[in-house]
Design a protein around this nucleic acid. Structure first.
Lengths: 213, 213
DNA sequence: TAGATTGTTAATCGATTAACAATC
DNA sequence: TAGATTGTTAATCGATTAACAATC
């Protein structure tokens, strides 16, 4: 169906292609050439064609790509058509924001549970979900079988929860902690979001632009 | 002081080095070799030495690197010693979480203002700051001169606010919107955080691991 | 058909890894 | 001094860009 291994660089560009194609579709575009798309996205036409050809032949010589056809192909490649049940661990500021702010359905997920250890937040309503005691996590997993988990807990707590979740069949983590999931689990899908690191690189760029380099 | 241009890949590794060195320091390490650090971080010793040598000679042959010395060098490179005033635009779920959850001081910033257009949130207290009406943003900038801004507003609103902020001297953006800042402003420092894209790549990995590739 | 644009191979560029002389 | 480990150059690997034949 697809080439044996897709590079990380390509994978990271897929959601952006998907977004741009969605916008083009909304704006009434029926077809687009790699050259035109490249111009809009700030890429090269070569790169775009190379990227798409990792997954198949989606274009037509002399014509270009059908916008909505290509969009749905990329959506399918990203797995956005299969909705996977996902739980959130940690209902602090960040966890709450993620739960409320993210459009899970359009990204291939559905948030089905929120867990915390803090008695003062257990029972709180976030969206249409109630924060549950993490004590009930095992039985919840047995029943609902979530495939993915978001980690918005303190880094120190991550190791323990990750082990139990993997034991319960969780296959993918959206990791906001600094706990290094890949240490023991190369078979698990992990996407790290290190906000602090991200901000620190902005500090670098702010302080080194022009002047000292 | 430093090589003319540092690659993006290197810059992205700096905050992680800084974190690991901090932990080593806390755990009483005085010196560490590139080999040992590589092992702990899951990198190669070569890469570590190459990375550090972009900025200077921080080690000593036959000895290795002094942990706290190296840590403070990297902190200095990241600009963490200079605290820059930063404002937040958008006090929705995400903006609130960022304001409350991030340790700005340790990342080289200080949050000095929060702005929103929504009358129902203006006046709210978030941490020790009150949400201000974005109508007062220009005069605030004239007085306080923030150098950086966090964009947690809808993408459609971004263009307008970015232009006014740049006109007021803002030099760096931590951008949570999909607005492409670099289109018109190559001289501005931008760090994009696209949470939706990040989640979509997790969907890809979940759905394509093992089975079809 | 002629023009356009893909899919794909080849060339280039950049980043990572390996090797080793310098030196503490 | 001998051993260890850096700083740095050379080799390799991977990703991006260029070129072009295939084809709609």
């Amino acid at each position: 169906m697809s080439k044996n291994t897709i590079s990380n660089s390509v994978i990271r560009r897929l959601p952006r292609y998907y977004r741009f194609l969605g916008e083009l579709e909304v704006n009434g575009y029926v077809r687009i050439s790699s050259r035109e798309l490249a111009e809009k996205m700030g890429l090269t036409a070569s790169q775009i064609r190379q990227d798409f050809n990792c997954f198949g032949e989606f274009g037509q010589q002399g014509y270009g790509y059908n916008v909505s056809g290509l969009k749905s192909e990329i959506g399918r490649i990203l797995g956005l058509n299969k909705i996977s049940p996902m739980i959130l661990l940690g209902a602090g500021n960040l966890g709450r924001a993620i739960a409320s702010h993210i459009d899970f359905k359009s990204k291939g997920f559905e948030l089905v549970g929120i867990f915390d250890t803090n008695p003062t937040v257990i029972g709180d309503k976030i969206g249409n979900l109630e924060v549950s005691d993490v004590a009930g996590l095992d039985s919840f997993c047995d029943e609902i079988k979530p495939q993915c988990a978001i980690l918005c807990i303190p880094s120190e707590a991550a190791s323990k929860e990750v082990e139990r979740l993997i034991a319960k069949g969780v296959k993918a983590f959206w990791n906001f902690t600094h706990y290094d999931l890949r240490i023991n689990h190369s078979d698990i899908a992990v996407e790290n979001v290190h906000l602090g690191d991200s901000l620190a690189t902005l500090s670098y760029r702010l302080n080194s632009d022009g002047s000292n380099c």
